[in-house]
Nucleic acid binder design. Structure first.
Lengths: 191, 191
DNA sequence: GGTTGTCATTAACATTTGATAAGAATAGAA
DNA sequence: TTCTATTCTTATCAAATGTTAATGACAACC
């Protein structure tokens, strides 16, 4: 338990004191590659910290196409319950893309910690803001950059992913087809 | 004052009791067409309800192009401070596109109301969720629909705007050029 | 009424991206 | 290993969208 709190302290930018409060409410959780962590439409009232592995959020659109909205890597927070649920039900799927290790805790217990610990309140709000900033930034990129530039930006943001993940996930994240992705990759190698 | 609270009660889906609490902290505010309500980079710690008129949020991208992110119409909430600021500074511009009337109140006072009135807490969270849902929905549309379908969807969502606003705002919102928008408009009239 | 400026439309051409299908490459299973 | 299945790449052609520039529409102003 002592180890875990110092791990959280280090990786999630919380004081040791706050980290210990977190450890008291958390449960470890793991999934295998390909498994669904959160399923669209299902009740969910938990928060998640991703310790190891890679995940993605995705939805299935009207044409039945699977569209990746975000990727999540080591030592990051899965988006807060508040931003991925409506009436307590998930509005998207979150899937393990590798074997993953998580920590989970009830949203309600986080709320309690937030109301009693100013640091935790600020921390949680900062996560929410970061989430939103990323959405705004992606929206701007999607609107104002060409696919090639979006791929360059993606490589910047997630240097490891392109060589690990199925390209179909990356293509839908970038808003292009697999074929276009392949074409752009070639152009970037051999301009 | 009595009028205002019953107006809020009716238009913003709050109980009369909660509306009265709001009226106590609110200040009326108005802008003329074209004026900036919120300026990127400036300190902002207020919330806004839009009573009359139309606004948009926008940013200027790396190439100097003005990109509209969202439109806001009568009796809706400007996105919460939390989602449009970083370190208390606005991350985007909000502009009046017509003469507008607003109500404004300090974010801190909203926080106080949220912690003492469960109804207001739920109300504020619902607004945040709606904001996020719209972003997710727009992202999915942007990725998986063609420009023509996006325009149809836009007309559905904002029936009045196309005939009132400069098309450059609408085009950048849809992620296309003015010329493409004009082309698509013709195709929809004369298929 | 004419002038000016702004914005929308149209045209012509270039570029990007999509759709489809056919070949490599790769990893697993028999 | 060989076979199979999946995924990535490549090629070809079509469709969508961008770029640039010219034209048209319209309102504001003199």
């Amino acid at each position: 338990m002592v180890e875990l709190s110092s791990y959280i302290n280090e990786k999630f930018f919380l004081s040791l004191h706050a980290s210990k409060r977190f450890v008291e409410i958390m449960t470890p959780l793991s999934f295998h590659e390909g498994e669904l962590i959160i399923e669209k439409g299902k009740i969910n009232n938990k928060e998640y910290l991703l310790l190891e592995g890679i995940c993605r959020s995705y939805v299935v659109n009207g044409q039945g196409a699977d569209i990746t909205l975000s990727f999540f890597t080591d030592n990051s927070c899965i988006p807060p319950n508040l931003v991925r649920t409506k009436s307590d039900r998930s509005i998207l799927n979150i899937q393990a893309l590798t074997d993953v290790k998580l920590l989970t805790f009830p949203t309600e217990k986080l709320m309690n910690l937030m109301s009693t610990h100013r640091e935790i309140e600020l921390w949680a709000n900062a996560i929410l803001q970061k989430e939103l900033m990323q959405k705004v930034e992606k929206e701007i990129n999607q609107i104002s950059l060409h696919a090639k530039e979006r791929l360059i930006h993606f490589r910047d943001q997630y240097p490891a992913l392109e060589n690990i993940l199925p390209h179909s996930y990356i293509a839908s994240y970038l808003g292009i087809t697999n074929v276009s992705l392949s074409r752009i990759r070639r152009e970037l190698v051999n301009p």
